[in-house]
């Protein structure tokens, strides 16, 4: 794992990707800090972090698009498969290399609260909530990077990988907004879930190329939903919006900015990370079986 990690890390700084990534993040954080902290004189750096969380839509695909797609494109994955390595160590090595690149701008931006404290003799700055939010911000990015890495493992084209992870970032960015639009009536949730189940069945079809599997998974998920709809429809009242709110990644940052160290959010970020690392390993493994 260590060798892969070192090679990947060097790779990011051999071409411009790593530098562009770091520069872009620092620039956006800098602009927001300049506006929020210095112009409007808010003492809260955590507002900057919640404000800039949209940059993940751009920087995560930039960071993750080549990580596995390029291996496949150059056929170097065959080298990795034929060497005495575990797939999990390859994936983890690459993931930690990306985390390291991502940690650099986050760590550099840790000086902002310190700089602000120079101009804050009366002690308005709450370091614990600033650095707590920064911690959550880091975890959020890490979870999104694991999703991007998974997208990159699905294709051999960097562009497709970038577009897919941008789509995934956008979806998770918009979930809370979407949750507010969806009416909380029973029928809205019912049809919303049916659409989601259809999408899931389609995904099953594309992954397995087996229409029976797709139908079976569609029915397995659909039958309970129909039963609930007609037997205990109360359960569906507002179900879809609250589910979307629950799975939203970006929303959870807000409670940190409000000064709450939300342990469930930390666990959630770590779980998403672990899940998508696992998916990535499986997707790499699947390639050998196709």
């Amino acid at each position: 794992m260590n060798n892969i990690y070192q090679k990947e890390l060097k790779g990011y700084f051999k071409n411009v990707t790593g530098f562009v990534f770091i520069a872009f993040m620092l620039a956006v954080i800098g602009i927001y800090a300049a506006v929020i902290n210095f112009t409007y004189a808010y003492p809260n750096f955590e507002f900057v972090l919640t404000g800039v969380s949209f940059i993940f839509l751009i920087v995560v695909p930039l960071l993750t698009m080549r990580v596995l797609a390029e291996e496949r494109h150059q056929k170097t994955d065959q080298l990795l498969y034929s060497l005495p390595l575990k797939l999990s160590s390859i994936v983890l090595g690459k993931f930690f290399a990306m985390l390291t690149v991502y940690a650099i701008p986050v760590l550099l931006s840790a000086v902002y609260p310190l700089v602000l404290s120079i101009y804050d003799p009366s002690g308005y700055i709450s370091f614990s909530s600033s650095y707590g939010t920064m911690f959550a911000f880091f975890l959020l990015g890490a979870a999104l990077i694991s999703i991007g890495m998974f997208m990159s493992s699905l294709t051999e084209s960097q562009i497709i990988a970038a577009v897919m992870s941008f789509g995934a970032m956008l979806m998770s960015f918009l979930t809370s907004a979407l949750a507010n639009i969806i009416p909380s009536t029973v029928n809205a949730s019912f049809f919303g879930f049916i659409v989601l189940i259809l999408l899931a069945a389609l995904l099953v079809y594309f992954l397995t190329k087996n229409s029976n599997m797709a139908w079976i998974s569609f029915l397995i998920l659909d039958i309970p939903l129909v039963l609930i709809r007609f037997l205990k429809s109360d359960l569906l009242y507002g179900a879809l919006p609250s589910m979307l709110k629950a799975i939203s990644l970006f929303d959870k940052l807000d409670s940190f900015a409000a000064g709450i160290f939300d342990m469930t959010a930390v666990v959630y970020y770590l779980s998403v990370m672990a899940l998508f690392i696992f998916f990535t390993v499986q997707s790499m493994e699947k390639r050998r079986w196709s």
């Binding site: 150059q74 056929k75 170097t76 994955d77 065959q78 080298l79 034929s82």
Partner: peptide, 10 residues
């Protein structure tokens, strides 16, 4: 193993 296309990092 040398695959059909040499697996080189460019």
């Amino acid at each position: 193993y040398l695959p059909e296309q040499p697996p080189l990092y460019h």
